[in-house]
Design a protein around this nucleic acid. Structure first.
Length: 837
DNA sequence: AAAACTGCATCTCAA
DNA sequence: ATGCAGTTTT
């Protein structure tokens, strides 16, 4: 047991055990040895975790000995905040939490790799210097394309996406290229092994890691380096892991290394390393999760981590939290009935204290526009609802109390249009969106090169952007030169004048470019008076001196949406400034060090402040998650994917697109396991709802340009018969679900899958034009204010009338019927159109 | 070397 | 329908 170095909180049992159920209370107070908390949806999981942390602190456990791991920054931030709130009333509450580590798996790994970079030198797959770059999917894909070219493999036969996914699988299973190769027998896997080798070599050359590497390399580090392992295990004595059902193999091994359970970690027989001072040598590891909410199997999550917890840690204590505090009885019943269809499942009883409430509604709609309209109408009605005095659930729902969930991001479009058209405020949970914009990625690529000149992917991205006379030929020659002399591309740029085949003009352009980069980081030293004074200053200088700014200023005179890009670049500067103001290297909320802690940062003491800041900034950008963007204080409806919804709750929830091939997804139809995961996904969606739930399915949906007949999701027929309200709005088909609810489920639905093109209204009652259907025509405030029916002139084709516009993204296209030239489809982004009327 | 055009593949989910 | 890459045009 630890010596008490802090003053215990006055009376912990009063303050932190107050108003808990027996099960919750025992989860909070069971502090020693392995503990598995099976927390059903809505069972007060976060409440238990935060109170458990507060309780540990109240016992006098030093805060720096506690490590809590989550999957998203948002979850970590919320947890920190709630712990702080719990301790607010205590004297010296700041000191009580100083050094407490609550962070994500990936952030923790990023920090450990940085700190122990020097310890990894000489390790077989040693790769990182402290300023490594974290590659996102785009970067990985760019790198993979180069690798494939180098190996002379056809990229249509070896799709970067598929190859990367195979490699990701290997990494999640902690397989090195050699290990992967050893168990490859056929041509396909042997080739993947070759690619894996080359890809790793390329990453290493760029001093870069991918997301999987963060975990993999940290596991490697802790397995191989006794110093790092001992320091880490010595510091953290109490480990807590949230959403344990979503951990993959790498995360599992990492957790065993962190908590010092060496037998399970593959370290084996290392003497003297016995981290975590638990009773009877048992590690103090507490994991929280729910097998019914395991929805990341496709990402390598291994549900057996949670199912086998008791055999991994013999003598583990198990506590089940089954009582639901969130949803009304009918909603919980729907969720329960659905999830019972999963056969590979340990049943647990769900029960709620929230009796009463209205049953969920299932709406059958005509098509996606109709669906969007009905959902928005439903939400509007809830919002405008008069308040009955006797029903507390009906009380004043505001926009922020509502959410719409869908299976994939493509479905958000129609819903956005409908919300916009109805004047309802909405936000889309896409935290990464900003940093994925082209112009922002460009600016960040400059910053990455400043921090890590070996980063080839970023360097290639920006070397001629904006155009600075360094063309493909020059780069190809420099590539050859670099390969010949075993230099990084950036070093080759510096030596361009020594390459025979580079023209003097090209040399000059290259020198100007390298000179610019060198001026920002003083040739990599970050020393001297000429380097930027602050991070915001650096970002600002990069944007202006790279001429990125000028480029968009010039462009924005011609193209309206280039003005937005300029705006985004300016926003990046202020984001850097905000970061700078918040960031305190001596008190990182994620990984704070405390005076008493022996593991001081070892690489940052002599590091120039600007570099420290830049590293932290780039890291924080690389690790933002979509879910991080959800701002509960915004007065708007939240639109998000079902995956992003996990862990959240809303008084009113709408789930759209419950159709075969969508939810469950096409890919899952063939496999029983994947089908069950889709069912869990639906379960997660339903259990987010506190009081109101609507589920919808559209009879027709436009897929890839084609309007297709759909089949209602089997999950709809798996909901409790009589436990829901069915509302069939597809009045063109009044016989739609006549056998609704009968045994056999999905088979009772109309299974004809006729292409809509052959659909003839014929004798059917004509469906009234839905307001939503025209929305794309009136909404499209496209860049040229073009609308169907407008008359335009094209320099080449002459005068014509716009027949239709397909808006969306940057590549909006218009089909125009020209008087002389016939029908043409033009890309609005490029076409030089003059609007006549 | 940049702008415009054409063909081809594509639609999960995401740290 | 849309986004990408490679190609043709200016």
């Amino acid at each position: 047991m630890q010596t008490m170095t802090m003053n215990p909180v006055s009376d912990p049992s009063e303050r932190f055990l107050d108003a808990l159920t027996d099960a919750q209370r025992s989860a909070v107070t069971h502090t020693e040895g392995p503990l598995l908390i099976l927390a059903a949806a809505g069972s007060g999981k976060t409440r238990v975790i935060t109170r458990r942390i507060a309780y540990l602190l109240s016992l006098g456990i030093p805060p720096w000995q506690i490590l809590a791991l989550t999957f998203t920054n948002k979850a970590a931030a919320e947890m920190r905040e709630r712990v702080a709130t719990l301790l607010e009333a205590e004297p010296e509450s700041d000191r009580l939490t100083r050094g407490l580590t609550v962070t994500t798996f990936h952030s923790l790994c990023a920090r450990l790799l940085r700190r122990y970079a020097a310890h990894m030198e000489g390790m077989p797959n040693w790769r990182t210097k402290p300023d490594y770059t974290i590659y996102d999917m785009d970067d990985q894909s760019a790198l993979m394309k180069r690798v494939l070219k180098e190996l002379e493999l056809d990229k249509s036969q070896w799709q970067p996406r598929a190859v990367l996914s195979a490699i990701s699988g290997a990494k999640n299973a902690l397989q090195s290229p050699d290990e992967f190769q050893a168990q490859s027998s056929d041509y396909y896997s042997n080739t993947i092994a070759r690619i894996y080798h080359a890809y790793e070599r390329a990453l290493r050359a760029a001093n870069a890691v991918d997301f999987d590497d963060l975990l993999l390399l940290t596991v490697d580090l802790l397995r191989r380096n006794e110093t790092a392992r001992a320091e880490v295990q010595d510091r953290w004595r109490y480990l807590m892991i949230d959403e344990y059902q979503d951990t993959n193999q790498a995360q599992f091994i990492l957790s065993t290394l962190l908590c010092g359970s060496n037998s399970a970690s593959g370290v084996g027989g290392v003497r003297g390393v016995r981290g975590v001072g638990g009773v009877g040598g048992q590690p103090n590891v507490c994991v929280v999760g729910d097998p019914d909410q395991s929805i990341y199997g496709w990402r390598g999550a291994d549900i057996s981590n949670i199912l086998d917890f008791e055999s991994t840690y013999p003598g583990a204590h198990v506590i089940a939290l089954g009582q639901n505090f969130r949803s009304t009885a009918p909603i919980l019943a729907a969720a329960d009935t659905l999830i019972r269809n999963n056969s590979k499942r340990k049943h647990k009883d769900l029960f709620t204290t929230r009796e009463g409430g209205s049953p969920p509604t299932v709406v059958l709609c005509q098509d996606e526009h109709h669906e969007a309209k009905l959902i928005v109408d439903w939400l509007r009605a809830l919002h405008d609802q008069a308040l009955p005095d006797d029903d507390p659930d009906a009380s004043s729902l505001t926009w922020k109390d509502m959410a719409i969930f869908y299976r994939n991001n493509a479905l958000s479009r129609v819903l956005e249009d409908e919300c916009r058209g109805a004047g309802i405020p909405y936000v889309i949970a896409r935290g990464t969106a900003f940093y994925q914009r082209e112009e922002v990625k460009d600016a960040i690529a400059y910053l990455r090169v400043v921090a890590n000149t070996a980063d080839d992917v970023s360097l290639r991205r920006i070397i001629n952007k904006p155009a600075r006379k360094i063309g493909k030929t020059t780069i190809d020659r420099l590539d050859t030169f670099a390969a010949h002399h075993e230099l990084s591309l950036f070093k080759a740029l510096h030596a361009a004048d020594q390459a025979q085949d580079i023209s003097p003009a090209a040399c000059k352009a290259v020198a100007k470019f390298t000179g610019m980069i060198d001026s920002w980081n003083a040739g990599g030293t970050f020393m001297g008076s000429d380097i930027p004074a602050s991070l915001a200053d650096l970002v600002s200088r990069v944007i202006s001196e790279s001429k990125l700014e000028d480029h968009y200023i010039a462009a924005s005179k011609k193209r309206e949406d280039d003005a937005q890009k300029l705006e985004n670049l300016r926003e990046l500067v202020s984001s850097a400034r905000d970061f700078e103001l918040e960031f305190d290297p001596t008190n990182d909320p994620a990984l704070a060090d405390v005076p008493a802690d022996p593991t001081q940062p070892i690489d940052e003491a002599d590091t120039p402040p600007l570099l420290v800041m830049l590293r932290a900034y780039l890291e924080s950008i690389a690790l933002v998650a979509d879910a991080d963007a959800i701002d509960p204080t915004a007065g708007a409806i939240t639109l998000m994917t079902l995956h992003a919804a996990k862990g959240l709750e809303f008084p009113a929830v709408a789930m759209v697109g419950l159709e075969e091939g969508l939810l469950p997804a096409q890919r899952a139809l063939a496999s029983e396991d994947e089908l069950e995961e889709e069912r869990r996904l639906a379960f997660v969606g339903i259990t987010r709802a506190m009081s109101h739930l609507t589920i919808s399915s559209a009879r027709y949906r436009t897929h890839r340009g084609l309007r297709e007949r759909t089949i209602p999701s089997r999950f709809i027929s798996e909901l409790p018969e009589g436990g829901i309200t069915l509302s069939d709005q597809t009045d063109a088909y009044d016989d739609t679900a006549r056998d609704w609810g009968a045994p056999g489920g999905g088979a009772d639905f109309d299974n004809t899958n006729t292409p809509a093109s052959r659909f003839k209204p014929g004798n059917r009652k004509p469906t009234p034009k839905l307001p939503g259907e025209l929305s794309y025509e009136r909404e499209v405030p496209d860049i040229h204010n073009l609308a169907a029916g407008a008359t335009v002139r094209h320099p080449q084709f002459g005068v014509g009338v716009v027949a239709s516009i397909s808006s969306r993204g940057m590549n909006a296209r218009a089909t125009i019927e020209f008087r002389d030239a016939g029908k043409k489809t033009l890309v609005l982004q490029y076409a030089r159109l003059e609007i006549l009327e």
